[in-house]
Amino acid sequence: MSAEFKTSKPIYSQIADRIIQQFVRGELHPGEKLPSVREMAIQSGVNPNTIQRTYGELERLGVVETKRGQGTFMTEQNEMKLKLRHDIQKEMIEAFIESMRSIGLNDHEIYESVNQSLKRSDHES
């Protein structure tokens, strides 16, 4: 299963990223119960301590809530989803800009090519 994990980042935070992305994409709903630590460990083929850390980290970020004796739930606060989407958006755009610059495009060229691509995909749809 480890083929699914990148080498350069701790596994616990990769699983956290995955949960955040599923939440932003609407595959996980606000207030939805997450699998137990054990179930999640089995699904992902990792040590349960790793999942414990993932859930702990998500709780610290306010993405999930742990209710005693009931389990771990996605937050019901709508602002959180917007905030996470904004974070991911920013991260993706920054990475995109960085790689465009690394192949030698200036800001104007980046802007133009994005604009053209957007227009093209607009025509197609």
């Binding site: 080498t7 350069s8 980042k9 701790p10 596994i11 790793t50």
Partner: peptide, 14 residues
């Protein structure tokens, strides 16, 4: 294992 990934950005194999 997780420390190696976090601090050094390496998998155990690397």
């Amino acid at each position: 294992v997780e420390e190696v990934r976090e601090k050094d950005g390496l998998s155990v194999l690397e």
